[in-house]
Computed example of a mutant assay.
Amino acid sequence: MYPLLEVHLDIIGENASKVLRLCEGKGIDVVGVTKGCSAFPEVAFVLLEAGIKILGDSRLDNIKKLRRAGVACPLMLLRIPMLSEIRELVELADMALVSEISVVKAINEEARRLGKFFKVILMIDMGDLREGIWPINLLSYLDSIRSLNYVELLGIGANFGCFGGVLPTPESVSMLINYASLAREYTLSDIPIVSVGGTVALQLLEEEK
């Protein structure tokens, strides 16, 4: 008998609704991540039906699969793209995490070629050491990004609970919010998103921290 994987879409939908209620009560938007199920389209549609408005994945092949399945919502690449991926990224997705100016400039050039605007979240390293710029370099990166015409700085983010196993704390989240406030003041722009990672941050919400 062949191995069989059962996917309970009703339970996934129920879990998504529960997370949404928890986050929306705190003014937090949720990105539904599809990489754990290899962007299985049925799961993606269940997440959207639950009320999630943005889907994210770390694999461009999965993002391509979602588009081919008819997923029309905004899609986010949940990692820093390679230069060789820029053309496909800008064609398929709407936003990505970034921490290299050379990558942001390449995104800007491809977006200019396609006549579209592309959103980026600038990652700051808060101790996990997976990705992100050093905080001391924030202002110089902001100068470089705001000089580009086809890239919009959507937010400031940090990665937690991955490479270094560093979990978010009220102190580290507060520090990240301060960096976002500094970015808004320096650029005189909205920069609406402060991204503090994935499910590792749920415990802070449940403990009301």
Rank of each mutant, 00 (worst) to 15 (best):
Y186L: 09
A158W: 07
G132A: 11
L92V: 14
R79V: 06
G115A: 07
V103M: 09
A93Y: 00
E152R: 13
M1R: 06
V33K: 10
N62C: 14
F40D: 14
G197K: 00
E6H: 10
V151L: 06
I52V: 15
Y2Q: 12
Y186T: 03
D57Q: 06
L114K: 15
V166M: 09
K53F: 13
G36L: 05
E152H: 12
I12C: 10
C37G: 04
F118R: 00
D29Q: 15
V104I: 15
E206W: 04
E24Q: 14
L202S: 04
K209Y: 03
D143T: 12
Y186Q: 03
D10W: 04
E208F: 09
L22S: 04
A16G: 11
F163A: 14
V194F: 04
V103H: 01
V19L: 13
G198L: 08
L60N: 08
R79N: 12
P81D: 05
V103W: 04
G115H: 03
S144C: 10
G165F: 08
I101Q: 07
P168A: 03
I63V: 15
Y141N: 10
F40V: 06
V173I: 10
L83M: 09
G132C: 04
I63M: 15
L83S: 12
K35L: 10
I28L: 02
A201M: 05
I86D: 03
M123C: 05
V103K: 05
I63H: 08
S172W: 03
G164R: 00
V194P: 04
R130A: 08
R184T: 07
N15W: 03
M126E: 03
L142I: 09
R87C: 12
R146D: 12
R59Y: 15
R87D: 14
I193F: 13
A72F: 10
Y179P: 05
I52Q: 08
E91W: 10
S140F: 11
P170Q: 06
I107L: 12
L83E: 08
F117S: 13
G127C: 02
T199N: 08
L188R: 13
K119L: 09
Y141W: 10
I12Y: 03
F118A: 02
F163K: 14
G198M: 14
I107N: 09
N137T: 12
K18V: 07
G132F: 06
V46I: 07
P135H: 12
G198D: 08
L83C: 06
E6R: 11
P168N: 02
I136L: 14
S140L: 10
Y2E: 07
A93D: 01
C73V: 15
G165L: 08
V43L: 11
E85L: 07
D128C: 11
S189D: 14
R113Q: 07
D190W: 09
E24V: 03
L114I: 06
L22E: 01
L78V: 04
I121R: 00
I107Y: 05
R79Q: 06
T199I: 02
G127R: 05
I124R: 01
R68K: 14
I86R: 04
I121P: 04
Y179F: 14
P74H: 14
G56H: 02
I136E: 15
S174G: 13
I80Q: 06
E42G: 09
F117D: 14
L78P: 00
L204F: 02
L77G: 07
D190Y: 12
S17N: 07
R67H: 04
E152W: 03
